[in-house]
Design a protein around this nucleic acid. Structure first.
Lengths: 199, 199
DNA sequence: GTCTATATAGCGATAGAC
DNA sequence: GTCTATCGCTATATAGAC
């Protein structure tokens, strides 16, 4: 680890913050440097190009994913509950890295797309042993993706924070949703033979 | 409707295509005009500004949402199955409009964010009567969002089309997922829920 | 390691011919 | 209704002083 230069982290924080608060188009080198309290030249000393800045954000996502996988494995509530519960935007370091990287990916950054894909596969692999079958795994993963998708839209400049409240379940609503998912994905099915014929 | 000028539609198609294929940053007026086979001046006759171009895309999304709500209401498989099934990217007009608008929203376009939010609320209102409770509605909506999120990432330049295949269920896997969701959301619960009093 | 100044190119938008 | 030409601005990136 050998803690990286502080200015470098501050630049990365600023990049992340602008991506989240104002969207991908606003995240210019000028804007990032200003927010980080350095000059553009100072920024470019730490990150040689904008692509390098994106790579730095993806590195941060990888590191935070490592830590989250450990926390998830140790979680007393179980990996499924932990994963869904922590998929609502709580503005912690991991949430911010995910939303910021998503913004980059949607702008067209290949490295951001690959980084998101990599983290997602690691979470899926860790969760798989704790759910009934592949359909159940799909359900859990997609639900989490949906939560991030909505939270990320809710944080856009066009959306009032109050309006977002009823888009995504929080508190008791989230608890009921998790309960629903747990019943659906972790237990053996009550009716062992679905025998559905429609597609 | 009084069919709009063809060139206008071609420009909108090109805008959509570039957003989907190359991401938000690549969707410049020059690139859109080139792909549509018109000059930049020609483009700007139909859409006075880039914001106006975004507004045109959102209008298209609204219109396609109208049509989809009708199809969903008439669907013999039922609204829930219809909604989930059609949430995988099939490259039809509605899918393309949604993914393209999502790219714009993540770039920071307030009008795109508002448009997505509006369509999502209309779908939610149409589905609500067909599921058990609000938690079930959340599940269905978030699952659909998750499918779009993944499909939109899979279409990014950084992701090979083959790799995307195992990210999102298709065919039989999708059928099993829908079956799982239907059992979870549409039937009366085996254990009758204690009437909860919040929300 | 951080700054200012500057080069270069690309972007959105306008003007005006046809 | 579509074109070419061009303006003014902003973006990324470089050079070189401190």
């Amino acid at each position: 680890m050998a803690r990286p230069p502080l200015a470098r982290e501050r630049v990365l924080d600023a990049f992340e913050a602008i991506l989240i608060d104002e969207g991908g188009r606003a995240a210019t080198l000028d804007a990032v440097a200003r927010r980080a309290g350095v000059s553009k030249g100072g920024l470019l000393y730490h990150f040689a190009s904008k692509d390098d800045l994106a790579a730095g954000l993806v590195d941060r996502l990888d590191t935070l994913t490592d830590a989250d996988l450990e926390r998830m494995a140790d979680s007393p509530e179980g990996p499924v509950t932990y994963y869904i519960r922590t998929s609502v935007m709580e503005d912690d370091a991991l949430d911010r890295a995910i939303v910021a990287t998503t913004r980059l990916a949607q702008g067209g950054s290949a490295i951001a797309t690959a980084g998101l894909d990599r983290s997602r596969r690691r979470w899926a692999a860790a969760i798989r042993p704790h759910v009934r079958d592949d359909a159940a795994l799909d359900l859990v993963m997609l639900l989490s993706d949906g939560l991030y998708f909505n939270n990320s839209l809710a944080f856009e400049p066009g959306a009032a924070a109050e309006d977002a409240a009823d888009l995504v379940p929080t508190g008791a609503g989230l608890a009921r949703l998790i309960d629903l998912v747990l019943r659906t994905t972790t237990r053996a099915p009550e009716d062992p033979e679905p025998a559905s014929d429609e597609v």
